[in-house]
Design a protein around this nucleic acid. Structure first.
Lengths: 152, 152
DNA sequence: GGATTATCCCCCACATTTCCCCACAGCCTC
DNA sequence: GAGGCTGTGGGGAAATGTGGGGGATAATCC
């Protein structure tokens, strides 16, 4: 699967609809059926996983966890109670629930970014402030993550 | 794949288009489909990877990283949100997004250099100042990098 | 229980941007 | 010297992002 790439500013209309960039829609596999699983980001944003990607994650990472451990149960509960399945309309837009809009602190403008296997939707101001440091450390971080990898 | 070689000065037109040197275009594999993945350089420039090369990197190096580690997530986000997939037009030009133009500090002239598996696009002035030191240390650095390799 | 209101979903419409095609001048090659 | 290739510039058509309307379904109030 080709990964989601790029960044762009979009608007949220009065109905809570957000258009996804055409470039990202083109990457979608037919198996995704124009459907996404939206959930709260680990950061203060909304994660969008194509349905097929989410299903694979579920089967590979979540289904076999031991739910008799409280930490596991708590993690899965936090993850799934925020999750929401939505299909694109004919214009390529997705509806973001009020819960998620509120969690991400989104008003009427958003910045949408591609992040390999998912799409992230941010409040533009939050993104600018939170990711400035990330960008500044880009070179060091590549060395840290990918350099570590070579040493394996 | 034969590596990209050489250096040349080109201009950026009003639409943000930059022609790639014909010599570099001839090196492209048909699998690249005349398409590049552009992303921010680790240095202050734009990296261009042919699509086939990028897809191999993605599958071999990025897809299997553990995104539950914050550092990994941050690195992939910085990498992918700057990335952009673009196809050459009939004249062999590629469009560079305004974001990348701005990041690399490019105005209307660029220097394009070949760098083995990728092409780099620089502001000519930035390149001259930043790479002067690199060139000066050429001999010592070859010994450092390639000498280490023999010791393995 | 019926009427009214609210919500959701699909369709239509428009303005801007993007993309693709055509055109031309300079250079190298033959 | 002729012809093709290369780098540069611009215009028209299609796609993209955005807004709003109308009908069906569900919820609420009297």
């Amino acid at each position: 699967m080709a990964g989601f790439k790029g960044q762009a500013d979009y608007s949220v209309d009065a109905k809570g609809r957000v258009a996804l960039p055409a470039k990202m829609r083109r990457v979608l596999s037919p198996a995704a059926n124009d459907t996404f699983v939206l959930t709260r980001g680990i950061e203060r944003c909304v994660y969008l996983y194509p349905l097929d990607v989410w299903n694979k994650k579920e089967a590979a990472e979540f289904e076999h966890l031991n739910q008799y451990e409280p930490e596991t149960r708590a993690m899965l509960r936090s993850m799934y109670r925020w999750a929401d399945e939505e299909t694109l309309d004919a214009q390529g837009r997705v509806i973001i629930s009020k819960r998620l809009i509120e969690f991400a602190g989104i008003a009427d403008k958003v910045t949408i970014i591609g992040a390999l296997d998912r799409i992230e939707i941010w409040n533009p101001d939050v993104l600018t402030t939170e990711l400035a440091e990330e960008d500044a450390q880009y070179g060091a971080r590549i060395q840290l993550v990918m350099g570590k990898r070579e040493a394996e």
